Amino acid sequence: MARDVTASPGPLDRWYEQAGVRTGVRRMFHEEAEHGKVFFPVELVPYTGHEAVRLLPPERVRELTVRHLYQFLLSTTHLETRVVNVAAEPVANGRAGLDLPAAVRLDAFKVYCDEGYHALYSLDLADQIAGVTGIAVPDWDYGGFVQRLRETGHELLPGAPQLAELLQAVVFETLITAVLNEVPGDRTVAAPVRDLLRDHARDEGRHHRFFSLFFKELWVRLSPSDRARAARALPALIRAALTWDLAPVHASLRLAGLDADTARQVVADTYGGGPGDRRLNEMARALLRLCAAVGVFELPGVREHFAAHGLGDGSDAGHEEHA
């Protein structure tokens, strides 16, 4: 029997008092107040350590860090609305084929509102910074990344596109995003950037808890055959979510003055191996613990299937985080 989520406080019960879209302020960039600050920590931009990038003039490297911030902000606008909200909407409207309590549907609408607001303020800040710095916001639509996610879901779960979308949303919303944790405390970064990422992190902490509870509700409602299919799909869905979209990186390097071949080499040297197993497990550790909690690894062959994808079973991750 599934837990009655209406019987105890939920992660979004105080949404009207806590959500950024309800209580937040518009983060405004004032150039004179941010003199000497950076837009994004250079040490969090992996390719700036490449020898070809180190040869660029300092102003070109600065542009790379600004566009890296744009990349994070734009990916937020697209992935929140085109991945997470694609799953949240049918849950909210009762179209997910699941007999869910009204409290879960209401919370899904709260998530939907939050994600739209995250998209709005991310694009808004990018536009403000472009106006101040003169560094244009590139026309990156992340269509290739979103399409790759969709194709991965269809390939892994043929005939069950909605289940694939729900699992992708669970994956995205339970991954640990280093940027949201690291940048807000870095006082070398412009205050509006730090404040916006802190705002985002607060909402995402509640979303993390919502989707953790939702996954448990989803899991108990799946048929045994669908549980087996979902369990075997999860490792590839995790890898797909954590495989960086490299087209914007290549385009940014070209804008910085590198020729096409050098830009491709920098991308290959920096990201060619994809996320290593250690990094993969670090970012997915909360999800792996969640899988262990609902019994995913108790299904025949699943533990070995995760291991073949470089993923553990969450047994060494300690207690679940409530970020």
Rank of each mutant, 00 (worst) to 15 (best):
L56T: 07
R60H: 13
A88W: 15
Y70H: 15
R82M: 12
L74H: 04
A88P: 13
V86N: 03
N85E: 09
L74G: 01
E89T: 15
H78F: 15
F72W: 05
E89R: 13
V86K: 09
R60A: 11
E63N: 01
E80Q: 13
T81N: 15
S75P: 03
E59Y: 05
L74I: 15
T76Y: 03
E63V: 11
E63T: 07
E59S: 09
P57M: 12
P58I: 02
L74W: 03
A88N: 15
R82Y: 13
L79Y: 02
P58C: 12
H68L: 04
E63R: 14
P57Q: 13
H78N: 07
F72M: 10
T77S: 14
L74F: 00
V84Y: 14
Y70F: 14
V83S: 14
L79N: 01
Y70Q: 09
V66S: 09
E89F: 13
T76F: 05
S75H: 09
T76G: 09
E63W: 05
R60S: 15
V61D: 03
H78D: 05
Q71L: 03
S75M: 14
A87V: 03
T77P: 07
H68S: 07
A87M: 08
F72I: 06
L73E: 11
R60C: 04
E63C: 03
V61Q: 06
T81V: 15
V84D: 05
P58V: 04
L64Y: 01
A87P: 08
E80N: 04
T77F: 13
E89G: 04
T65F: 10
E80S: 01
L56Q: 01
P57D: 01
A88T: 07
S75E: 12
L64F: 02
R67H: 04
E80G: 09
L74R: 02
